[in-house]
Design a protein around this nucleic acid. Structure first.
Lengths: 247, 247
DNA sequence: GCACATCTGCGTACGCCGTACAAGAACTGA
DNA sequence: TCAGTTCTTGTACGGCGTACGCAGATGTGC
């Protein structure tokens, strides 16, 4: 939260993104780090100890440089997050040369997998303002291309992508939050967490105001809930899109 | 990130949520604050200056008490976030006595409206571990009840709710991020932001690797994009659910 | 070969943050 | 009245992001 003022009546100043500053000038001493190394180190720390553990000091320590050395490569911590997001976005591998529906399925599954593998991703995406990192843009392009030539307007194509994207992010975020609650609470399994929260749940049920939810808690077979819910939702969405657009 | 260890082999300890600690004992001096006031003050600060501005010090200052006084009412900052989330969740007003589809539409629209009105909500939901606040639970119950009696299993009912919920949260998050980028960049309008990012977009287009995205940028009529995209996606989802479940 | 512009790495310092701790103030029930 | 309980507060600690300026490494033009 550095440029927080927002009240200045100044003219729209051009924002220079990291991605435009990547090529290094050929004048001074050779840099000791690359942006890739920074991104990788950040991802490692976040994977191991959570996003809050990614501090400039710890990052520098892991890279073997002084804290302030990092600021030669990034303008601030937000840039680090952006590098990290782009790094894991590269892990999204889309299937080649299939129809839009297969590609959407692949994109959804991969995005969810990445979000679960890197449990900090959801929080990072919610924090950083600039989300058009190169690797993400590349996936968007692939998705749009699969929808091209079906007689849709570009706005509609983007809406299709946006719908799938929004669902996957929301579903993954929910799932991650539940898993994180288990981890941060110090419980070994979801079962232990359920036991720990039992008094609260009992209190909820005891109020008598949530009969349907109570039925879900008691009757529901909560086996592999998340995966099944995700696939159910995704197929509904793809069905709805196909029907509405006639594709 | 207080209970971050997660390695202790201790037994599953019961977690006592705020909601169970709300009733006060009748012994000591009268409390100067209520949880409601704390929630309201937090929401005000976040609305005005963003979620990062909600610090225990600032919160206490606005309430006219010392910083540490807050800790008589909350166990830590996470509790404050939870109170804030529950406070704005109360703003979700569902239509009465309609079919599941109308109710889902209402829920979606209201949740999106709340998320846009309180632009910090998305980030808050991504940070706090415990998301079963009373007011949220109440909305879940209403949604589930509207699906009851249609011959669905409880798991399916919950999946329907989860799908709609995930989509709305994802879509709203995306929208908020875009708006926040404008605000934090200090630009007065989205048009100014577009101009500021023009060099980057030009660079993206210049690479020639994103032809379909380029077409969207050039041909797309980006008028009221978000609202239209949201409604398009929502209707597709409701269509798909109705068709798949025969309801 | 050498001065100079330029870039890199780093140490220090400032003002924030969340919150542990313990002592004092306010209130109640006996 | 007064012991017991709860509420409020000041201080302090370790951590955070990063502004600033200096020392040294590196390439360029003479």
């Amino acid at each position: 939260m550095t440029a927080e003022d927002g009240d200045g009546g100044t003219a729209p100043e051009a924002r220079v993104t990291i991605w435009e500053r990547l090529e290094r000038p050929a004048r001074g001493p050779r840099p000791a780090l690359t942006h890739d190394q920074i991104a990788r180190a950040g991802v490692e720390i976040a994977d191991e100890q959570g996003l809050d553990a990614v501090s400039m000091r710890r990052l520098a320590e892991r890279l073997g440089v002084a804290t302030m050395a990092l600021y030669r490569y990034v303008a601030g911590k937000d840039d680090v997050l952006e590098l990290m997001i782009d790094a894991v976005a590269a892990e999204i591998e889309l299937p080649r040369a299939t129809g839009w529906r297969e590609l959407a399925r692949g994109f959804a599954g991969e995005l969810r997998a990445v979000g679960l593998r890197h449990h900090w991703l959801t929080a990072a995406l919610a924090r950083t303002p600039h989300v058009l990192t190169p690797n993400l843009v590349e996936r968007v392009e692939d998705m749009l291309r699969s929808l091209d030539g079906l007689g849709l307007e570009v706005d509609t194509m983007m809406a299709v992508f946006g719908t799938v994207n929004a669902f996957v992010r929301g579903a993954t975020a929910d799932e991650v939050i539940r898993r994180e609650a288990v981890r941060r609470g110090g419980w070994a399994s979801e079962e232990e967490a359920r036991i720990a929260y039992l008094p609260y749940v009992r209190w909820l049920i005891g109020t008598g105001r949530y009969p349907t939810l109570t039925r879900y808690i008691i009757e529901g077979s909560n086996e592999d809930d998340s995966q099944w819910q995700f696939e159910f939702g995704l197929e509904c969405i793809l069905d709805g899109i196909a029907a509405r657009l006639g594709i």
